[in-house]
């Protein structure tokens, strides 16, 4: 890494590309081993991807313990389905989709319970430790206060960069609904941030 710091931009890009290729090769090897039931290899895959999986779980649920459960559930499901992974998409994408499904499944299951909890809790959800700094913390908090449908679309489309088609497919909604929910999310966020004097 020290060598990378002294390299010029093009050298840096080439070096990063090499690192990326090495990482992909290592990941492919780990996947192959894990598919042959190597728990050690699967743990290595967990270490590589947990931050991203937990990230989407936390952004979507807005709750630490729910996000932890979802992330664990996603990896357990991934282990059970690992032999079905054929590499048609990147492993991280495959895992991400499992995580999103896990979140949605838990949301559906615990909807009544969540409503009950929300009824007796404060209006403002607790601030999440997302690692965002400065003014982005306000945006993060505002996203966390969005209604579920708008929040899910905003997180997948605006934060994680999925297209509306992909977002709709992952959430089981129409592309048009995804666009409408994004519009709603942006309007609500703008109102919220304006009240708090947020400047991008």
């Amino acid at each position: 890494m020290a060598a990378l710091l002294t390299a010029d931009t093009s050298d840096y890009s080439r070096a990063m590309a090499t690192v990326s290729t090495d990482t992909q090769a290592e990941e492919a090897m780990l996947i192959e081993q894990a598919q042959r039931s190597s728990r050690r290899a699967f743990e290595a895959l967990y270490r590589l991807h947990i931050d991203r999986v937990y990230g989407v779980c936390l952004r979507m649920t807005g709750n630490v313990s729910e996000a932890e459960d979802c992330a664990q559930d996603a990896f357990i499901q991934a282990w059970n389905k690992l032999k079905l992974f054929r590499g048609d998409s990147a492993f991280s994408t495959w895992l991400h989709r499992i995580a999103v499904n896990s979140v949605l499944g838990r949301m559906r299951k615990s909807k009544r319970e969540q409503e009950r909890i929300m009824a007796v809790s404060d209006d403002t959800p607790p601030r999440l430790e997302t690692g965002d700094s400065g003014e982005l913390r306000d945006l993060s908090d505002a996203v966390n206060q969005l209604p579920e449908g708008a929040r899910n679309v905003f997180v997948l489309h605006a934060v994680y960069g999925y297209s509306h088609d992909e977002t709709g497919e992952m959430l089981g909604i129409a592309t048009g609904t995804s666009k409408a929910q994004l519009h709603r999310a942006k309007r609500l966020l703008a109102q919220q941030l304006k009240q708090e004097g947020f400047e991008a």
Binding site: R39, E43, Y46, R47, I50, D51, R52, Y54, G55, V56, L58, R59, V64, A67, E68, A71, Q72, F75, I76, W79, E129, T130, G131, D132, E135, L136, L139, S140, V143, F154, A158, V159, Y160, G161, K186, L189, A190, L193, K194, F198, E199, A200
Partner: peptide, 30 residues
């Protein structure tokens, strides 16, 4: 803040978040 600024800010939000505790033990047990 307009839509474009909002989307740019959203794209800067952290995508990878480290959980507060190691979740591997529960996964391994399962």
């Amino acid at each position: 803040m307009n839509d474009e600024e909002l989307m740019r800010a959203a794209a800067r939000l952290a995508r990878e978040i480290r959980p507060e505790r190691d979740l591997w033990a529960g996964i391994e047990e399962a």
